[in-house]
Design a protein around this nucleic acid. Structure first.
Length: 588
RNA sequence: UGGGGAGUCGCCAAGUUGGUUAAGGCACUGGGUUUUGAUCCCAGCAUCCGAAGGUUCGAGUCCUUCCUCCUCAGCCA
């Protein structure tokens, strides 16, 4: 079973190696924590932190989480769990124009769904960057006082021009040498709403000639009159990510601040800022350290926020929770499970190399956990009649089907067999192709959990399509009875009694894109959309599949894994979504 | 053409301070079990670590040069 195959020891990676090394350091072992985020004075008055390390998952509440975030969630929460630490859930809400409570709720739900909890003893460890605005303001004034920041009166356009290029140094702003007093008073005026949006900006004063753009006096506080979902209209200036994020980490005593590769260039500023504030006595050592890993790239999938929004807004999908979407909300409706994601993230590892993970790794991870977890049921997706001509009319009998071949303790259920059955259209071939060993004229096959039958022929309509298949059963071959295997057959097909079937809608999902790298080159990624990514069919199911609850997962034997759609199912009338097919070694 | 990163089997990915035959997973290929062409089990699968030189008794691990890819010029995060 999967639990045996799944490595007990998480695979080593460079971040684990760093943490192992850090754990041996005295300043990590003795760092203090006052029970809540805060400045140096607050934390130093605390006790030695029981959390060996602190990590954080810091989404901006401006959209839905996707599979790429799952990698980060498992990384951050997993590291904390494995090293005796805690992981904070922190909303990085420093840009009021894009953020909302709706996203806050959906993100928290997704993290919980994946199985993580940010509570530690009686601390919630659920934080908002916006709760640190007071401190950030104080930190900004401190920077000004130390001569590390100034108010610039250049326009955004002027700043862009004077920033220089990849090969040319930038030029100092004409406002760069304003006095501390003037900077302070201007900054306060910014806070007090005396200046128009965009007219003034606070910049760190570092080096306009640095080869690293992030050190060319980056903007750290802007004037923006916008209503914030958390702080309302208290502020009209908001800190930039660059400035806010290191502070958030430090206030929360994060030890390992893990982010994606594109933030590598910001690390020098991250360290510069924190060092300045520690020198000013505002922040306590040890300061958090930033580490970067490669974000997830999945073939046949797009994970960019922009593209996901486009798919939703232009209605190429039904919504953010469309089962074809790589959002966690979509994946959940698709039947992907937290355990499957866990296996997946364990398999793909963590490194700094840009890589593309094959989509099949995700699918296979889901198969592996579902194979163990999902009970088996019978469903005929593309029904065609099979009539057992030598079976009595108006008779039916019990057949016994195990609920789970790997878990006999789950018992068996009964399904009814009668003269007229539904079987899969593709399980009959009038003229069999090479290697086909299912139903074919004069051929024998076992009706799974029932009898061996011999095919006697078929009926066709005017167009030559097969409408009914005929067969005769061998009475001594019923599954589970002595001598049932006296007749050996290679083929084994599933069926549902026509008079004991439940009709239901089943949605067959396939990949959303037909190309491994949608939009590669200068193509429009929409051109790579798979036109057959979803097919809705009416299937014939065994009766037990009528009364099921939302999000229950089943293996439809010989087909794949299906989940009861949590949105469109109603009591007694479930709708099933195909999560993933079974592997099929038989190439037609 | 400046800075910051990355290049180990088809796809991922381990490889401590250089030390014997380069982990593991997925995929793939054989074989076995099997009333799911599923699952499961067994076996095979890089003389080679982007390339070329060099140091060394010994290099994926050190040095030099080169090549390829990613990334940075938002008052986004």
């Amino acid at each position: 079973m999967s639990s045996e195959k799944t490595p007990i020891q998480p695979a080593s990676n460079f971040i684990r190696a760093i943490i192992e090394k850090d754990l041996a350091l005295i300043n990590y072992a003795t760092k203090k924590w006052a029970g809540s985020p805060g400045d140096a004075a607050h934390q130093d008055a605390g006790v030695v932190d029981t959390a060996k390390i602190r990590t954080r998952f810091p989404p901006e509440p401006n959209g839905y989480l996707h599979i790429g975030h799952a990698k980060s969630i498992f990384l951050n929460f997993g590291l904390a769990r494995d090293f005796g630490g805690v992981c904070h859930l922190r909303f990085d809400d420093t840009n009021p124009e894009k953020e909302s409570q709706e996203y806050v709720d959906s993100i928290a739900d997704a993290v919980k769904w994946l199985g993580f909890d940010w509570h530690n003893n009686n601390e919630s460890n659920l934080y908002f960057a916006s709760n640190y605005f007071d401190f950030m303001y104080r930190a900004a004034e401190s920077l000004i006082e130390a001569g590390h920041a100034y108010v610039d009166s250049q326009t955004a356009e002027e700043m862009r021009i004077t920033r220089g290029t990849l090969t040319e140094a930038g030029k100092n702003s004409p406002w760069r040498d304003r006095s501390v007093a003037e900077n302070l008073s201007l900054f306060r005026e910014m806070r007090d709403g005396k200046h128009a949006d965009g007219s003034l900006i606070l910049r760190a004063k570092i080096d306009m000639a640095s080869p690293n753009f992030n050190m060319r006096d980056p903007a750290i506080y802007r004037v923006r009159r916008a209503h914030h979902h958390n702080t309302g209209d208290k502020w009209c200036i908001y800190p930039m990510y660059t400035f806010a994020h290191p502070i958030e980490d430090a206030l929360e005593r994060i030890t390992h601040s893990i982010c994606t590769l594109e933030f590598e260039d910001q690390r020098p500023f991250y360290d510069w800022l924190l060092e300045c504030l520690a020198e000013a006595g505002l922040l306590a050592h040890p300061l958090p350290k930033q580490y970067e890993f490669a974000r997830l790239n999945l073939t046949y999938v797009v994970l960019s926020k922009r593209k996901l929004i486009q798919l939703v807004e232009e209605k190429h999908v039904s919504g953010w929770d469309d089962p074809r979407l790589p959002t966690l909300a979509g994946a959940r409706r698709r039947g992907y499970t937290p355990a499957g994601f866990k296996l997946f993230t364990d398999r793909i590892g963590v490194s700094k190399a840009d890589s593309w993970i094959e989509y099949s790794i995700l699918e296979d991870s889901m198969r592996e956990v579902l194979n163990v977890d999902a009970e088996r049921r019978i469903a005929v997706l593309d029904p065609i009649k099979l009539v057992i001509d030598n079976y009595p009319d108006n008779q039916s009998e019990d057949c016994f089907a195990p609920n789970h071949p790997l878990k006999p303790e789950l018992g068996k259920r009964t399904v009814q067999l009668s003269k007229a059955l539904w079987i899969e259209r593709e399980d009959f071939m009038e003229v069999p192709s090479k290697g086909f060993f299912r139903l074919t004229p004069d051929g024998m096959v076992r009706l799974r959990y029932g009898y061996v039958v011999k095919c006697t022929g078929c009926e066709k309509d005017a167009d030559g399509n097969v409408t009914v298949v005929h067969c005769e059963y061998l009475p001594d071959t019923k599954s589970g009875t002595p001598g049932s295997d006296s007749v050996k057959v290679k083929g084994n097909i599933h069926w549902v009694s026509a008079s004991h079937a439940h009709e239901a809608e089943v949605r067959l999902y396939d990949r959303l894109f037909k190309e491994a790298h949608p939009g590669e080159g200068d193509k429009d990624f929409l051109d790579d959309l798979n036109p057959n990514s979803v097919t809705s069919i009416t299937a014939q199911l065994e009766l037990g599949l009528k009364d099921v609850s939302a999000e229950e997962c089943f293996q439809f034997e010989r087909h794949g894994y299906f989940v009861v759609d949590k949105k469109d199912s109603v009591v007694g009338k479930p709708v099933f979504n195909r999560t993933v097919t079974l592997r099929d070694a038989w190439q037609k």
